[in-house]
């Protein structure tokens, strides 16, 4: 076998790529690197540019941070005594989210257990596809449902004067969160090794014992993460709660009270706040607060999931 001479044309061709192609390739590779870290840049940019719009109000004399966080008095357009207290809004968000979770968690976890453990493979595929489609329903459609059908049902069955209230928002958010909890919870249960199940059955455990004593403890981190991601979605949800919870800025005393959440408040008022005004900047500060809340919830969920992957 003769070794080709390095001056042979076939060997030269490799070096004949035009400088254009080589330069272009370099540029493209840098583009890939830049895009690669784009997600990091966007997260930083989102925080920076929202904070940038909010920053000047922190030094305004009509604004105090403790009032912003701990006062329930939200009178952003009062001409005499402007007050920017978001406590009622924060509590509104908490109340709606809590009610939604009280409804969604049992259904979501029950659904995840059924799909992962008790359904036939064929039914499992069909159910997972259905759940995925339900998760894709846009939030404005949910808001519309809350505003029309759900509010009518609530007025008929509870006798509440208005149908758009905490209960309405809670039910709507619950229906929106169930698909997320089901699909992530199902993943967590699927991650439990089959040997656990086999051991349980071999020991003569009933299905209840298997679920309660074996699967739930083994998958508890994943299931907790599923619930946390449901919470994250409920806290950040905007259009649905804007349309379904009514518009009263108040600390709710019962589930038939109208409430307003942090997200809905921004959506409802930013359009009317003049650019650069204190009101406008306080709404951006609310955005910073929301960013911080959801970031904390998601980072917790992330840690919890990491914990369950290590095992």
């Amino acid at each position: 076998m003769n070794i080709p001479d390095s001056t042979h044309p076939a060997c030269q061709r490799r070096h004949q790529r035009s400088p254009f192609a080589i330069g272009g390739e370099k540029a493209l590779e840098w583009l890939i690197r830049l895009s690669g870290i784009s997600a990091i840049l966007f997260v930083l940019a989102i925080f920076f540019f929202i904070f940038r719009e909010a920053l000047p109000v922190l030094f305004s004399e009509r604004f105090s941070l403790s009032q912003f966080l701990f006062s329930a008095e939200w009178y952003p357009t009062s001409s005499v005594n402007v007050r920017y207290g978001t406590l009622a809004l924060t509590l509104g968000t908490c109340a709606v989210t809590a009610l939604a979770m009280v409804i969604a968690v049992p259904f979501g976890l029950g659904g995840a257990i059924y799909i992962s453990e008790f359904s036939s493979p064929r039914a499992r595929e069909a159910l997972k596809i259905t759940i995925e489609l339900l998760a894709a329903i846009p939030s404005v459609v949910w808001g519309f449902i809350g505003l029309t059908m759900m509010s009518k049902l609530i007025v008929t069955y509870t006798g509440a004067p208005v149908g758009v209230n905490l209960l309405n928002g809670g039910i709507i958010l619950a229906l929106m969160s169930v698909p997320i909890i089901v699909s992530i919870g199902e993943d967590a249960l699927k991650a439990v090794p089959d040997s656990f199940r086999e051991a349980g059955i071999a020991m003569g455990a009933t299905k209840w014992q298997l679920v309660y004593r074996v699967l739930l403890p083994a998958a508890k981190n994943g299931l907790l993460a599923a619930v946390l991601l449901g919470v994250g979605r409920a806290v950040g949800e905007t259009m649905a709660v804007l349309m379904a919870t009514g518009h009263a800025v108040q600390i709710p005393h019962g589930i038939l009270d109208s409430v307003r959440t942090l997200t809905a408040n921004v959506a409802a008022e930013l359009g009317e706040a003049p650019v650069g005004s204190d009101h406008y900047r306080v709404l951006f500060l609310t955005g910073v607060l929301l960013f911080a809340i959801t970031f904390t919830v998601n980072i917790t969920a992330d840690f919890v999931i990491r914990g369950f992957k290590k095992k």
């Binding site: 650019v275 960013f291 998601n298």
Partner: peptide, 27 residues
């Protein structure tokens, strides 16, 4: 990067609206 992607997925949609206004429209 993976953490940033997860964070991005969890940011409320209204906060993206604020970002669009603060970054694109105002900057």
């Amino acid at each position: 990067v993976r953490f940033a992607v997860n964070t991005l997925a969890g940011i409320p949609s209204i906060v993206f609206g604020l970002f669009g206004l603060g970054f694109f429209v105002q900057f």
